[in-house]
Amino acid sequence: MRLTYLVPLALFVVIGIGLAIGLTLNPREIPSALIGKPVPEFSLPPVQGRDHGLSTADLKTGQPSVVNVFASWCVPCRVEHPLIMALKRDNLAPIHGLNYKDDPADVVKWLNQLGDPFTRTGADRNGRVGIDWGVYGVPETFVVDGNGQIVCKHVGPLMQHDLDTKIRPLLQDLAAGRASKVKC
């Protein structure tokens, strides 16, 4: 048999493998444009009944932090909430809330009912700060280093697996000041 007869088969295999890889990718996960960049300039008032709002300076304290974008109307936020509480108990880094396009009364009820894991909670009523952060689906979770650089972004509700393989190791690496091998 002549070797040229194998060319279509080889092409088929190459294209097939390429398409198979494509099928495993998640189109919902858009690579963030902000990874490795400083957090945007912003300043948000606290949500009703809380004392600490959130601004750029709060993320440049020399200590790494976690910023969780959430809303009381967001069902997946409710799903991930127990894990955020667990992360809070680990005491690895302060967790700040960015309350995205929420009703002031609803968010207070939500936090009082489910528990408040946040050190600071900024109220982004019209969603403009969210857009500056490149938020396109709530919940989103950002890991920020002590200099205010965004190190990692997770879109969608955090699962136990994400905490164990991404967020916790990354925070431990940041706290120890070593380069992290965690892929975000």
Binding site: I30, P31, A33, I131, D132, W133, G134, Y136
Partner: peptide
């Protein structure tokens, strides 16, 4: 918008 969301 590219700055915030990438070229995507």
């Amino acid at each position: 918008l590219v700055q915030r969301y990438g070229e995507w």
